[in-house]
């Protein structure tokens, strides 16, 4: 479904040149969920932004369905690939009602049947019709993220790019959104690329993942390997350790309990 070959993203020129992503390659099959893990500055979000055209591709190729994506992206691309952003407080237009936000993609692509499709999209993400005419400030963080997911799903894309979709949310809300994403993927046969700094979240949603650091690939591994603590690189192991919580001495028995 999605092929990333030797992707490079470079900002600036000369002495100010910054290589945000250096030679990253991976393949995501149809219906698969693929994770990109790393700390800030690892270039994981830049990979997503480069795929959808928000960051420039300086080298390498991005193929969707076996075809190289055009620059600038065309409407057909946006019907295939959609994105959900990290901060639901920033990704909804503050002066637009949910209804307006959701009718926008339909209007852009000249789709008919807006009424029923908006109602259906709201149902899909677990929001009732009572949410339709609210403004973002009348919604909680989790509800906003649901609206953002509904917006991304309206055009019936095949690939969903998820940029830290739960990191701005409370733990209990995160669980709800993760369940929703899991369910949507199953029901709609979606392909996911999930970017997150949280190993547990990535392992929960994805089967395979790429660990990145300083714009480079550290290793490609599987969620199963993470769960059994079989990482090839020291860096991944240190990420796993850090995700277990704070420990005064490295091996504290109960630290494995909560996450």
């Amino acid at each position: 479904m999605l092929d990333i070959q030797n992707l490079r993203v470079t900002y600036g020129t000369g002495r100010l040149q910054v290589d945000a992503v250096k030679d990253v390659s991976f393949h995501v099959g149809t219906g698969e969920a693929f994770g990109l893990v790393g700390e800030s500055g690892s270039g994981k979000s830049t990979v997503l932004r480069a795929i959808c055209g928000l960051a420039p591709i300086s080298g390498g190729r991005v193929l969707v369905d076996g075809r190289e994506v055009p620059t600038p992206r065309d409407k057909a691309f946006y019907r295939t690939v959609q994105m959900v952003f990290q901060d639901p407080y920033a990704s909804l237009h503050p002066r637009h009602t949910v209804d307006r936000t959701l009718s926008e993609p339909l209007a852009i692509h000249g789709e008919k049947d807006a009424e029923t499709r908006i109602a259906q999209a709201l149902r899909e993400v677990g929001l009732g019709p009572s949410f339709r005419f609210r403004y973002p400030h009348q919604l909680s963080g989790g509800q906003r993220q649901r609206v953002a997911i509904a917006r991304a799903l309206l055009l019936r894309p095949k690939v969903l790019l998820l940029d830290e979709p739960t990191s701005a949310l409370d733990a209990s809300v995160q669980a709800e959104i993760l369940n929703l994403l899991d369910e949507l993927r199953r029901n709609l046969g979606l392909t996911y690329i999930l970017v997150s700094h949280d190993l547990a979240v990535v392992a929960h949603l994805c089967d395979r993942l790429l660990v990145m650091r300083h714009g480079e690939t550290v290793e490609e591994t599987t969620a199963a390997a993470l769960r059994t603590n079989q990482a090839a690189s020291d860096y991944t192991r240190s990420l796993i350790n850090a995700s277990q919580g704070f420990s005064r001495d490295a091996a504290r028995p109960e630290s494995a309990l909560t996450r």
Partner: peptide, 24 residues
Amino acid sequence: DFIAAVKLQGASTPRIIFGHVVPL
């Protein structure tokens, strides 16, 4: 992000300017 989001829906530049930037 909300401008990036509408860009990713394939909105044209005039549409973004008049529908999303101008009202703010």
